[in-house]
Design a protein around this nucleic acid. Sequence first.
DNA 1: TATTTTTCTTAAACTAGTTTATTTTTTCTG
DNA 2: CAGAAAAAATAAACTAGTTTAAGAAAAATA
Lengths: 191, 191
Amino acid sequence: MENFEVIIRYYEKIYGRPVTVSEKDLIQGSFRKETIRKKEIIFRGGDSNTRHYFIEKGLLRMYVIDSAGKEFNILFAREYQWIGDLATPSETLFYLDAVEKSVVYSISDENMNKLTNDFSMFVKYIKKSYIFLQKRLVSILINTAEENYKQLVEQSPELISRLPQYHISSYLGVTSVFLSKILSKNARNKY
Amino acid sequence: MENFEVIIRYYEKIYGRPVTVSEKDLIQGSFRKETIRKKEIIFRGGDSNTRHYFIEKGLLRMYVIDSAGKEFNILFAREYQWIGDLATPSETLFYLDAVEKSVVYSISDENMNKLTNDFSMFVKYIKKSYIFLQKRLVSILINTAEENYKQLVEQSPELISRLPQYHISSYLGVTSVFLSKILSKNARNKY
DNA sequence: TATTTTTCTTAAACTAGTTTATTTTTTCTG
DNA sequence: CAGAAAAAATAAACTAGTTTAAGAAAAATA
């Protein structure tokens, strides 16, 4: 029963008050608690009606695969963050999988909207996502990969330590070979 | 008085019914009709509480300026489209100006939220913007500038003809010199 | 802990895109 | 419609990033 503790706490934090009994039921009825194995794929490009995921524990990544089979990471999410394709229920371009073994709460877009109508917090989520994405686009347009790497180290040092280097390079839009070159150059410069 | 015709029609289309007298008053009281000269700057990086713009006539662009003074176009908007920084009322990174002489309806973020009492329309707008931006990020990560140019020609031929080439190159994230090279190469290949 | 698998590094030859500068073409304005 | 201003093209030397391939280091597993 008290399995849903984390997501309930999350909503209480959002509302700034305890959830009522009926809200609690609604949450428990809408979310599905799932455990995802490392490298397990949650959804893939072409899938429709993908779900939204709130992470209790672990690390997920959303990515595209281009026609040559190369992966590009679009977004990572860790504890207490949301991830999913906001274009749902339309067919998605993206793949979602777990970088680490994860525990998540998933919800359908339909239920998300229902919860939203009552609590009107979807706007916040989507607006925040938009702003984040916009910053990411700007960085990629303006900066070199090296500058973007430095920024990531400053802003999300935790991600750097939790992710293999090749996932980071793919997030920065460069090859792992090139990121490695940047890093070894910088390591040398330290002396 | 019937100055606000276009924006009222727009809301009627959204609602799927004629607006009531009080809704009409609300619209007329919330929006400001403005004429923007070509190259006139509407807001600039560092401004707070920027407004949202609905375009009756013309073409606007939103862009960033990097530390070297180089501009990167983030978004264009033409007739019957919205543009603005969704991060408002926070301080914006962006500049907004008119590529062509334009007629717009502007609204503060506060009034925008009031007008969309049930949020559903605002959610729609943000969601659509988000999905568009996401596609744009994916294209820039995955494709070469040449591929992105071809895609733009297919998807928005009108933009190509209305914008000077250097605005397009900046949108694609490359220099105008490089875009010109792509074009002349392709022109040659046609023979 | 030895072995296998995964990740990271290095190198070399290559391609995409930049920079700066000059010239040509197009568009705007008096 | 002439002259000025803005936009586009071209060239050449450069830098950022890719590709392929092979070896080294680290991590996972028997």
